[in-house]
Amino acid sequence: MISIDQVSKHKGRARILHEVSFEARPGRVTGFLGPNGAGKTSTLRVLLGLDRPRSGTALIDGRPYAAWNRPLTVAGALLDGSGAHRARTARAHLRWVAASNGLPRTRVEEVLDLVGLTADAGKRAGKFSLGMSRRLGLATALLGDPPVLVLDEPVNGLDPAGIRWMRTFLRDSADQGRTVLLSSHLMGELAEIADDVVIIDRGRVVARGTLDEVTGGHPTLEDAFLALTAAGQPW
């Protein structure tokens, strides 16, 4: 379970996040929706211990991510890019990450097969397309078979077949009991698979609830988003 409570973050004098609060629960896909620059990635970076908030807490199963001894077995994350050095092959990158968390090499081959990269495992990451890099990033997130997945714009760069595969994979992951937190600025993508939705605009959460609750009275998630952000309070 993910619990974000009253998280605020500043960059210099600029307020990036303002008392952001929401939960993502096991067995559900939580869509974290907002336009580019709304604060989605900043929130996820705080959750993963990459940035410090000015105030508030961001916890995974009751503890900060950095407090876990083998974090890959608790939460797998996909942020920008694959995280691999351009000169490393996909297999070498995954083996290095697996070793850092005491995971067996056999798991590397399993996740390469799971994301469809077995045939390209010997290629250097610098020669990967954007879509292949996203797959490698997902493979890295899955190494520890974690109960929590945190994914920032995971369909970015994927072709239509890849997008369909990603949707199915994330839906299946939640159905197996995982907590899936998925950020996106593509409202249609979230409407396909999300159980719960959190809408953020200019660093503030303007709506949260089940997909039906958030879209209640609006024909689409996009219409709900436009209405909610238009009614939001200024900074």
Rank of each mutant, 00 (worst) to 15 (best):
151 L>D: 00
72 L>R: 07
128 F>H: 05
128 F>I: 06
174 A>M: 13
98 A>G: 10
176 Q>S: 08
77 A>K: 00
84 A>S: 13
109 E>A: 14
179 T>I: 12
107 R>Q: 15
180 V>L: 03
111 V>F: 14
152 D>W: 00
109 E>G: 15
112 L>W: 02
104 P>M: 09
153 E>A: 09
125 A>P: 01
176 Q>A: 15
136 L>W: 09
111 V>R: 07
147 P>H: 06
117 L>Q: 05
70 R>K: 15
89 T>V: 05
84 A>L: 10
165 W>A: 12
77 A>E: 05
96 W>A: 13
102 G>M: 14
122 G>E: 11
171 R>N: 05
136 L>S: 10
86 R>H: 14
91 R>P: 01
80 D>A: 13
144 G>W: 05
113 D>K: 03
166 M>D: 01
83 G>H: 09
78 L>A: 01
96 W>G: 01
110 E>N: 10
174 A>F: 08
83 G>A: 13
73 T>W: 05
137 G>N: 01
176 Q>D: 14
132 M>K: 06
131 G>W: 00
145 D>S: 15
139 A>I: 06
100 S>H: 09
151 L>P: 04
102 G>V: 14
70 R>F: 12
104 P>F: 05
134 R>D: 00
96 W>T: 10
79 L>E: 11
160 P>T: 04
92 A>V: 06
130 L>W: 03
85 H>P: 09
148 V>E: 06
69 N>S: 12
99 A>V: 09
152 D>Q: 08
164 R>K: 10
